[in-house]
Simulated assay, not measured.
Amino acid sequence: MRVDLLTREFPPHVYGGAGVHVAELSAVLAQHIDVRVRCFDGPRPDRPGVTGYDVPADLADANPALRTLGVDLRMAADVAGADLVHSHTWYANLAGHLGGLLHDVPHVLSAHSLEPLRPWKAEQLGGGYALSSWAERTAYEGAARVIAVSAGMRADILRSYPQIDPEKVVVVHNGIDTDAWARPAEEAIAQVAAAHGIDPDRPAVIFVGRITRQKGLGYLLAAAESLPADVQLILCAGAPDTAELAAEVTERVNRLQQQRTGVVWISEMLPREQVMALLAMATVFVCPSIYEPLGIVNLEAMAVGTAVVASATGGIPEVVQHGTTGLLVPLEQLTDGTGTPLHPERFIADLAAALTELTGDPDRAAAMGAAGRQRAAEQFSWAAIAERTLEVYRDALGA
């Protein structure tokens, strides 16, 4: 069986959980089948079996959505010979849809997020958001199978795209490589902490994520104002969606730094080894997202052995066990697609309370971190997820 994986992100250009997912999944699937990866961001001559595409020159100055569709057309032409195509995120969904039609093979797609539930992207793409939404809807409605990364995500898919046959939508969770994600040596942790001016003797809360509305960074910054004075806040936050959002976050972080010590903002993308060291030295990892189909970053924190405080939305409750591997913060939200909290002040207060609870009890936080590491290893291994994905492939080909 030959399967072509179509993706926006692939190493070394990985910006979020979807890129991590494809990199890990492709490596495990390659042990069983012929896997070809097709991705954005130019050729990968040093990576056998990986074809990278540049944006067509005549679209270089076009709307970002049009540039994406230009790459999709090239991918669709090149999947000739595949038995099945498997696309990831709206960036590559249309390539999978058109490639499947053109070459008469099944198209399977993995849903890592949904455009109808990210309306703030109109700030970033303008009219391109209408194009990305059209591309996603067309691909979902035409796909042979849709893989949801959580049961929460499956429910979102069926609500957003009611024309899809529910029998075609299956759940296969994201995974984590617990050999690659593990607690570093204490010396390495100390070196990274010192390099960023973090005090190892003070409790710390860490956030890792892009600066985008869905990650809920604004709510965290508000909650941080009421954390105990000795608690540090480490923000590994970069790649803002818009200049306006970047300016908003900059202003709020600066204000917070004037109010309290120990607020560290790291805007550059760090190597995995440094991220693991920062996660390991923190008392608590926080995920204040208002939209999160699964949240692979929670799995990464758990694999390193760090307790998690996260909003109870999307697929997060399927990963974080409340009271065992961390604490879930209740979140009532609007159902208009924005995910806006119905009671933002209550959410901020509850988030601050959960963070205060665990940073004030480091022994309990450490026990939760150990339980999280065990859960990640037992329930979210890539070997099991690859086998489940292969079952979806066989089912689509059999149909």
Rank of each mutant, 00 (worst) to 15 (best):
S160C: 12
A60W: 02
W120S: 15
R118E: 12
L131M: 11
V85K: 05
A139C: 03
T178P: 04
W120N: 11
W120Q: 13
S150G: 14
A92P: 04
L114N: 04
A139Y: 06
L84G: 12
D165Y: 08
L98F: 11
W90V: 08
E136F: 08
W90C: 05
H173R: 08
I157E: 00
D165E: 09
A155T: 11
K121T: 14
A135H: 05
W181Y: 10
A135C: 07
H86R: 12
H86S: 08
T68M: 15
P166C: 08
G99C: 00
K121G: 09
V79N: 04
R118C: 05
L101C: 03
P106M: 06
R118F: 03
L114K: 03
E141M: 07
V105W: 03
K121S: 05
G99A: 06
G81N: 11
P116D: 11
Q124L: 01
T138H: 11
G128D: 03
H97A: 15
T68S: 11
V146S: 00
V105M: 05
P119W: 01
A77P: 00
R159Y: 01
D179N: 13
S160Q: 03
W90E: 05
Y140C: 12
S132V: 14
T89Q: 10
R137K: 15
S87V: 07
M153T: 13
Q163W: 07
T89L: 09
G128C: 04
A180T: 10
G142Q: 04
N93H: 15
L69N: 11
A80E: 15
V105Q: 07
L69Y: 10
Y91L: 11
D179G: 10
H97M: 13
W90Q: 13
L117R: 14
G152Y: 07
Q124D: 07
W181N: 03
A180C: 06
W181K: 08
P162V: 00
N93S: 14
L117T: 03
R159N: 09
V85R: 05
W90I: 02
A122D: 09
D104E: 15
G96R: 05
S110D: 10
A77V: 14
M153R: 03
E115N: 11
S150F: 02
T138C: 12
L131T: 14
A76C: 03
L98E: 06
M153C: 15
